[in-house]
């Protein structure tokens, strides 16, 4: 929990730094590296190797996906949102909306989902299952 909070604050600081440096057109990658290492305490770095999995828990992934859908304005009936809801049957999304949801999930967890797998994600639990199977999801 503490670790994810740290990660989040580091990420927020990074995006802010990237935004403010955008005017000078400095490359984003090195600046994000610098801010990240400045904000993360050394104990955290010692505890987790760079190659280690982020270690997402199922409830956390579910919560983040449901939150993401809550903010998606095309969901017809937010009360039907649950960790098992089906995108088209329960939430009234068409296939194009599903593509958008999958893209939003890609952004949320900073991974890339290949087209083939993306095609198979039709419900919240399918998405959760897929994210949990990805070692590099954040």
């Amino acid at each position: 929990m503490f670790r994810t909070a740290l990660l989040r604050s580091a990420r927020r600081a990074t995006s802010q730094a990237a935004r403010s440096s955008g005017a000078i057109a400095r490359p984003v990658v090195p600046s994000s590296f610098i801010t990240k290492s400045r904000f993360a305490p050394s104990a955290f770095q010692a505890a987790r190797c760079y190659s280690a999995a982020a270690g997402l828990s199922k409830p956390e992934v579910e919560g983040r996906i449901v939150d993401l859908l809550k903010n998606f304005d095309k969901v017809s009936d937010p009360s039907k949102l649950s960790p098992t809801s089906h995108f088209s049957n329960d939430l009234g999304l068409d296939s194009l909306d599903t593509v958008e949801v999958v893209m939003a999930i890609e952004e949320e967890f900073s991974i890339e989902i290949p087209d083939k797998e993306a095609d198979a994600i039709h419900s919240v639990d399918k998405a959760v299952e897929y994210i949990l199977a990805q070692p590099d999801a954040h």
Binding site: L96, V99, E100, M103, D115, A118, D119
Partner: peptide
């Protein structure tokens, strides 16, 4: 179908 979805994503 995949092609259509790919161009949709690019446009998005």
């Amino acid at each position: 179908r995949r092609e259509v979805i790919a161009i949709y994503k690019e446009l998005l």
